[in-house]
């Protein structure tokens, strides 16, 4: 029998999750976000123009005002999207996966591999065009404790999935 040791853990010596170098999302994912939003805002703009033409009362509003407000909203939301895109980053360590996200707050989530239940790979239409995929990692803790990492190159995502599956197996 091996000699049993039970030394005190020096908490200062433990690897630190907060000092891990995180990988940013693929820069093409920003394009996906941009196009997605451009589509949504164009639809809104078209509906607004349609309403403006068809509803008589609305002609009282100056179109420039409405347009101005609309532009401000568009710009602010793109700005916010940019921040949230910049903040998103991930890292796969030997024993866990780290994902950072957030807008006002910076949330860092860590899932140990031995708590992962299953993994899914999701490809949106636009993402597929840019060769990107989203890795979804599920735990038993419900939707609050799942990680979804978008904007990873397809091959890399496949690799990550394989890595995760391998890790899960080893843990059991």
């Amino acid at each position: 029998m091996e000699e049993f040791t039970n030394e005190t853990i020096d908490t200062k010596q433990l690897p630190r999750f907060e000092e891990v170098q995180l990988t940013a999302l693929h820069k093409n994912y920003w394009k996906v976000l941009l196009i997605n939003n451009a589509i949504i805002f164009s639809i809104i703009a078209i509906v607004m123009i349609f309403l403006w033409i068809n509803i008589e009362d609305s002609q009282e509003f100056s179109p420039f005002w409405v347009f101005g407000v609309f532009l401000v909203i568009v710009n602010v939301s793109f700005f916010l999207y940019r921040i949230s895109f910049k903040k998103k980053a991930y890292a796969f360590r030997n024993h866990d996966v780290i994902y950072r996200s957030g807008l006002v707050a910076t949330n860092t989530m860590v899932i140990p591999y031995n708590r992962v239940q299953h993994v899914a790979l999701h490809e949106g239409f636009l993402s597929r065009y840019f060769g990107l995929a989203k890795v979804e990692i599920f735990t038993a803790g419900g939707s609050a404790s799942d990680i979804e990492i978008p904007g990873i190159a397809k091959e890399e995502a496949e690799n990550i999935k394989q890595l995760l599956m391998g890790k899960i197996q080893k843990q059991l």
Binding site: E18, V104, A105, N107, M109, I111, A140, G141
Partner: peptide, 11 residues
């Protein structure tokens, strides 16, 4: 029993 840990900080 912990499944995942999130830390969060306002800027």
């Amino acid at each position: 029993k912990i499944q995942a840990i999130t830390t969060s900080q306002l800027f």
